[in-house]
Computed example of a mutant assay.
Amino acid sequence: MRGDLSTGRKRHSHPYDWYVDECWVAMQLYRALGGFAAEKAAGEAIWDPSAGLGNTIEHFQNNGHVTFASDIVERIDYSLFSATAAPLPQFFSADFLETTAAPARCSIVCNPPYSYIKGISEAFVRHALTLSSRRVCAVLPVKWLTSQARFHLFTDHPPQAVMILSQRPSMPPGDMIAAMGNRAFNGGDYAWFVWDVTRPTPRHETRTIWLPPLDRPDLHQPIEVLA
């Protein structure tokens, strides 16, 4: 089975698109965007509205950010989080697309669902752009870029950056990891799509950035124009 589960092969899909991203995926985003220092300085939280186990916000909470987590089903693994770095993520059960307000002033960082309802990934992003106080960061398959259906999203709301994960992460269905064994960890092609709602990006000015492999710590530096 391929690690990139965006293939539409429904026999491998979780009914709510619960795919488990590896914790380092968010770590790379965190480092590239300067540790989300602007959010911390402004007292703004980080909210993951498709939280799953909590892998995406683990690095934020463990670095002292106030974090919120929500999802249709609670699956948070609280053992991921430091008991001393910051309060544990505050979880609430919610369908994100029916949520009318953020739990606090925040940036939204998530691994959104992208196939169990047609167009749900675009709907997630558009809704996040209305609720975020600062940034929206969504990790999605690289091929999400190439779609006539999303042309209007990218022209209405050009991303500030598309940050391609050079090291290919695995995102197996959360309920199949044990049964799949090593097959669960075959990498796929993913990127972070980043929007800054405080400074909308002009059309045709989206930056493309390649995030380095994990074995090149010397290259893991903040990208000043995005931090």
Rank of each mutant, 00 (worst) to 15 (best):
A26C: 09
A179F: 10
H59Y: 11
Q148T: 13
I164N: 09
Q90L: 11
A178W: 04
L140K: 01
H220L: 13
G174I: 12
S70K: 09
A191P: 05
D218I: 06
D4I: 11
E39T: 08
E98L: 12
F92M: 07
P169N: 07
P103S: 04
T130F: 09
A85T: 00
D175S: 13
D156W: 00
C137H: 03
F151A: 12
G188E: 02
A178E: 11
R31P: 01
D17K: 02
L131K: 07
L88G: 01
K40V: 11
L211E: 00
I76R: 13
P212D: 00
V139S: 03
N182Q: 10
N186Y: 06
M163N: 03
P173G: 08
M163G: 02
M171A: 13
G174H: 11
V142Q: 12
S13A: 15
V136C: 01
A69C: 01
D4P: 05
N186Q: 12
G8C: 05
A123L: 05
G187K: 07
I209W: 06
T130W: 03
K143P: 00
D196R: 12
K143E: 05
F96L: 00
P141A: 11
R203Q: 14
I108P: 02
D21H: 10
R203G: 05
S170W: 01
L53G: 10
I223N: 07
G187F: 04
V197P: 02
H14D: 09
E122W: 10
L33H: 03
P158Q: 14
P103T: 06
F81K: 01
R9N: 13
V136A: 00
L33P: 00
N111R: 04
G174Q: 11
L29A: 03
V197R: 01
S82Y: 09
N182D: 14
V136I: 07
G174N: 11
N62L: 04
G187D: 02
G174C: 13
D215T: 11
R207Y: 08
P141F: 12
P200G: 13
V162F: 10
C110I: 13
Y114H: 11
V73I: 15
L219R: 12
G35P: 02
E122T: 14
G174W: 10
M1N: 12
P159D: 03
E224N: 14
P222R: 07
A128P: 01
P217E: 04
H65W: 10
D175W: 06
L226D: 03
P15E: 07
R203N: 06
